[in-house]
Nucleic acid binder design. Structure first.
Length: 256
DNA sequence: ATGGTGGCCCGGCCA
């Protein structure tokens, strides 16, 4: 079972690239973020024509998350399953091929002294509560998406350039660690200890070509999935060419 | 390295 996560940065703008990528890679499940569209505008037909079921939680201009699957899609839950619902469309959960999957778009945070950063930290608390509500650590669970957190310094191109900014601060990394303490594992990092594996590069400054990236798109899995993961990768080729997203897809292959 | 891009939708916000 091949599962992917991809922040597409507008599914309207990216649909040709997304369709071409799916046709090429043939993933079983794709978790998407930043679709930036309403549920009504979501191109479910484009996916069903390719053999995929889909579920979308959108709000319009910003955010928006989706799950597409060719191994079944049921038990769809939009928003948090516990506590106060988020005002924004950032999380959707479903069961695909016997695996509980969650597509998440964690708030960016903007700056450490910004209110949005506190929203980010609260959101990560809610994510832990959500995970605890929908699964047990012994279940087969994948929480994938744009976490807007680089788990450690090896996940950024230059730690000095990022001092004092979001994505690398201790409080948000501790929230990520809390998810791992519950039972989630960063399976891509486990399989790839090497540096310079990034999933996002700013559109500005020629960042992609200069290698100025961060690994902020993660596939966190419980051990039931991690122990059966035979292969994983970040498809940086998808960051190249015409009208790319600023994020690359992250993939894991799980033996079934 | 604090914007030289690219989304949103059409002036400025957001990433």
């Amino acid at each position: 079972m091949l599962l992917a996560t991809w922040n597409v940065n507008s599914l309207k703008a990216r649909l040709p690239r997304v369709q071409a990528w799916i046709a090429d890679v043939q993933p079983d499940v794709v978790l998407m973020q930043e679709t930036k569209m309403t549920d009504k505008a979501f191109p479910a037909l484009a996916f069903s024509e390719m053999g995929y079921d889909s579920a979308h939680f959108g709000q319009g201009q910003w955010n928006g998350v989706a799950i597409v699957s060719k191994v079944g899609l049921s038990d769809v839950q939009t928003n948090f399953a516990a506590g106060e619902p988020d005002a924004e469309a950032r999380i959707i959960t479903a069961t695909c091929g016997g695996v509980k999957v969650v597509s998440v778009y964690v708030p960016n945070g903007r700056a450490l002294d910004h209110e949005h950063y506190h929203y980010k930290l609260r959101w990560l608390d809610s994510l832990l509560a959500h995970v605890q509500a929908v699964a047990k650590p012994t279940d087969a669970l994948v929480v994938g998406g744009d976490f807007n957190i680089a788990p450690s310094d090896i996940d950024v191109w230059d730690t000095k350039a990022l001092e004092g900014s979001t994505h690398v601060s201790a409080p948000e990394r501790e929230k990520l660690q809390a998810l791992c303490d519950w039972g989630l594992r960063d399976v891509v990092r486990e399989q790839h200890p090497e540096p310079k594996i990034y999933s996002w590069w700013d559109y500005r400054n020629g960042s992609f070509h200069r290698g100025w990236g961060m690994r902020i798109d993660l596939m966190l899995t419980t051990s039931k999935v991690a122990d059966d993961t035979t292969w994983s990768a970040i498809d940086r080729n998808a960051r190249k060419g015409e009208q790319p997203s600023d994020h690359a897809p992250v993939l894991i292959e799980v033996a079934t």
